[in-house]
């Protein structure tokens, strides 16, 4: 049994400690924000925040979040930051099939928490572990730039 805080609630997972955090989130807690793309840490579709830092939940053993705070897209949805990111992604036309977007949003949030006014280079770097097969990235970069400008003071 592993205890941690998930989206603001203290919870206990009954799964084996070596289970992938991704399977715990989706299978045991029904959170489908984190997606499985590659399952090997390469694509970022499964991104979550652990103590405010970006993690790939597909290569994080459940044991490694013991006592920590995990936030998935669902736990972040009601925040002002999320609403702004959502609007900017829509306005910039940054979403096509949408599969990578939850991960992109989590990576954007992790970046903006660290660097509230990133340069284009810093945005590309911050999202470098998140792959998108549809958009060609430029619109996603624009969306994050837009959010950083409009969200002055939010992060």
């Amino acid at each position: 049994m592993v205890e941690f805080t998930l989206n603001g609630r203290k919870i206990r997972s009954q799964m084996s400690p070596d289970t992938r955090l991704l399977d715990v989130l989706r299978g045991e807690f029904g959170l489908t924000g984190p997606k499985e793309g590659c399952g090997e840490g390469e694509c970022g579709a499964c991104s979550v925040l652990v103590d405010g830092k970006l993690f790939n939940s597909c290569i994080t053993p459940l044991a490694n979040v013991r006592g920590k705070t995990v936030v998935t897209l669902e736990g972040f949805r009601d925040s002002e930051e999320y609403k702004l990111l959502e609007k900017c992604f829509a306005d910039a036309g940054a979403v096509q099939c949408g599969f990578c977007i939850p991960g992109m949003i989590m990576a954007s949030e992790a970046l903006l928490l660290r660097v509230p006014h990133p340069t284009e280079e810093e945005i590309r770097e911050g999202l470098s572990g998140n792959l998108c097969r549809c958009t060609g990235y430029n619109m996603i970069i624009n969306a994050v730039q837009m959010a950083a400008e409009k969200g002055d003071g939010l992060w």
Binding site: G41, G44, L54, F55, N56, T60, E125, S128, G129, N130
Partner: peptide, 9 residues
């Protein structure tokens, strides 16, 4: 090395 998420762990 890799990406921000990998460098965090």
């Amino acid at each position: 090395i890799a990406s921000p998420a990998i460098r965090n762990v």
